[in-house]
Design a protein around this nucleic acid. Structure first.
Lengths: 135, 135
DNA sequence: CAGATACTTTACGTTTACGTAAACTTACCC
DNA sequence: GGGTAAGTTTACGTAAACGTAAAGTATCTG
């Protein structure tokens, strides 16, 4: 429905809550390739999708260089030679391994947060008990 | 069983595959507090646990400052006032929200990796088919 | 058409997380 | 006791990911 076809840099910036500086920097690093109307950058809905992917990648701790590599990896998939394609499969499986490690890490941190919360609530209960004794 | 009680900086470095420079830097940033024998740093098994936590945090994209804050948060849990403790509970729940976001991100990236792999395998199959035709 | 708003390039500055080198002490080994 | 391996401090260097300021252009708006 609301398939807007082009965006200004300002629109993207406010939608994703980043500065225009960042967006231009992403272009500089080869992550975005907006067209131009004169000097002015025009972003397609494809570019908008890429912005989402960039931010998602950053939240997962990927560097911009890694994200760019993943993009070009994706872009070259169809035109790749057999050797290229097998390399891509390897990279994909390696990225999967990284994500699996992250899942493990998250699970462990969640356990630690659980413990921290329990300790916290016990300490609070202790304080309440002391109040009772005083009153 | 193998509960070694102290470690040199070199031992920790090789165990966790980081440089001694990094370990000293973590100390500089308040993440580690080894004791000393003369000039030489001596790390306890507590410090070793912290190294694990530091690296885990880094894999999840936390900055050293954030990790340090989480450490002191944990350390001050027991001695905290009621107000402090409630603040900690808030921070914990916020960290939990971050992890949930990361889980979502990971799930979405996994789907994209699946798609990429499928495209890749299709392109490979295409190449095989072409070979057949030629032969 | 004047002024505000949004966009542009250029370029230097900043923070984080170390790398790297120098110059020095300490510990162990034959 | 002479080396060499591992430790130390001090300090400058660096890559990544922008921030920030300057100085100009383009567009819209009353």
């Amino acid at each position: 429905m609301s398939e807007k076809k082009s965006y200004s840099i300002g629109e993207l910036a406010s939608e994703f809550d980043v500065t225009t500086r960042s967006i231009r920097f992403y272009e500089d690093q080869g992550l975005l390739h907006p067209t131009r109307r004169g000097q002015t950058r025009i972003y397609s809905s494809q570019d908008r999708v890429r912005m989402k992917l960039i931010l998602r990648g950053k939240r997962l701790g990927f560097s911009l260089a890694e994200i760019r590599d993943l993009f070009s990896l994706w872009d070259e998939t169809l035109s790749g030679s057999e050797k290229q394609l097998n390399l891509l499969l390897e990279i994909i499986s390696q990225k999967r391994a990284e994500l699996d490690q992250q899942l493990k890490d998250i699970a462990m941190v969640q356990v630690e947060l659980d413990n921290a919360e329990i300790r916290c609530r016990e300490a609070l209960a202790e304080l309440q008990a002391q109040k009772q004794q005083v009153s």
